[in-house]
Design a protein around this nucleic acid. Structure first.
Lengths: 200, 200
DNA sequence: TTTTCGACCAAATCGGTTTTTTGGTCAAAA
DNA sequence: TTTTGACCAAAAAACCGATTTGGTCGAAAA
């Protein structure tokens, strides 16, 4: 790794450290710089500003989730019940680890849009798009196998899944009780995968 | 109606008016009293305090939702697809009209618990309990007819439904676009009522 | 050339103080 | 029985100087 990247990385680590603990507003660029053993102006040499720093930290978090989920998807060739189960359970865990994101999931609903919530939504969208595609193909595959009703449109189904999952996330965002969350997801899966569960 | 009740009602109307527009914190008992053409002390003669005023307004809102939903339930004898469809579509509309509640759905998640969010949760619980029972019996009925997988526990299903619906509510709480919300609910119903939809 | 940094600025935030408003009470009036 | 104005302690709002903040720049290292 080039030295430039090393510096960038250490600044980002420091930023993530503070954003995680104190949030965007209560973190100053100066303390981020100090923790990375740099002067504040150096941070501005590597990043265009505090907001870009924040965005990059979020992007890293979302990237980790996307990578983790794609690993599951590529592990199985076609969509199976086992895959979907593992997908959801992994999703819970990965989302939990995206701490800065979780701190700001609610921000777009709490205070009307601002620059921070704007960025949160934008970054989140990259994950949403990928998940949306996954649920659409899940629906299509389900219909081919007769597990899903023909009436439901894959696109509408995809949007519904995003909404439902995000809604659950919001309600669990400050709980550390992961068990209840898993139960909810399991119940959803059972209803979703009706036929497969019933044929056991 | 007794005159006493009339006064109470006009005070409650005034309180609802302000709570709806400015929320609990930004409404003063004095302005509530003025709008009801009473002195502040009169409000305290009829109600034990600002919080009880707030609670009563919320209770009225929830009562309207419960009544509306019970009308649907009693219109149909047994649980049918048509009933559930109408139940959900009515639910969207009724919830939308519970404005003060909607303003505070998020409060328990935003700021940690406080006296206001405590009351919101408490009052909401009366509706939750009734809905929970409905979804439990929906699940049982569904299992008897073979529409629902045997694997899913009615109690877990009931909790899941409450979570999912509340999650959706939260995300739509400041949108006036009712169409997208209806689409989401419709998609949910289609997946939920799989067999019935497929046998059409 | 590439990277770091001290000095600097306008704007926002902070801490402490005073002023106003607020939720709630009470004795007297209606 | 119901209403009210006067009253109080506490909370909130308004105020204001001092500090901190995000961001820039030109010079010094490397």
């Amino acid at each position: 790794m080039k030295n430039l990247d090393k510096v960038r990385e250490s600044i980002l680590d420091s930023a993530a450290y503070f954003f995680d603990r104190f949030g965007y507003e209560k973190t100053s660029v100066d303390e981020i710089a100090r923790r990375a053993h740099k002067a504040k102006a150096s941070v501005y040499y590597h990043f265009s500003g505090k907001l870009q720093l924040f965005r990059t930290v979020l992007e890293q978090e979302m990237e980790r989730v996307r990578t983790g989920l794609n690993e599951i998807k590529s592990k199985y060739g076609t969509i199976t019940t086992d895959e979907v189960k593992e997908y959801f359970m992994t999703r819970i865990r990965l989302m939990r680890e995206a701490k800065v994101y979780r701190r700001y999931v609610l921000s777009s609903y709490m205070y009307g849009r601002n620059e921070v919530s704007e960025i949160v939504d934008e970054v989140r969208k990259s994950l949403d798009d990928e998940e949306y595609a996954y649920y659409v193909s899940l629906c299509k595959a389900g219909k081919e196998e007769g597990i899903f009703p023909e009436a439901v449109s894959p696109e509408v189904f995809g949007n519904m899944m995003l909404l439902v999952l995000k809604g659950i996330e919001i309600q669990f965002f400050d709980t550390d009780d992961i068990r209840e969350m898993e139960n909810t997801y399991r119940a959803m899966l059972e209803v979703l995968m009706f036929k497969l569960y019933n044929n056991n």
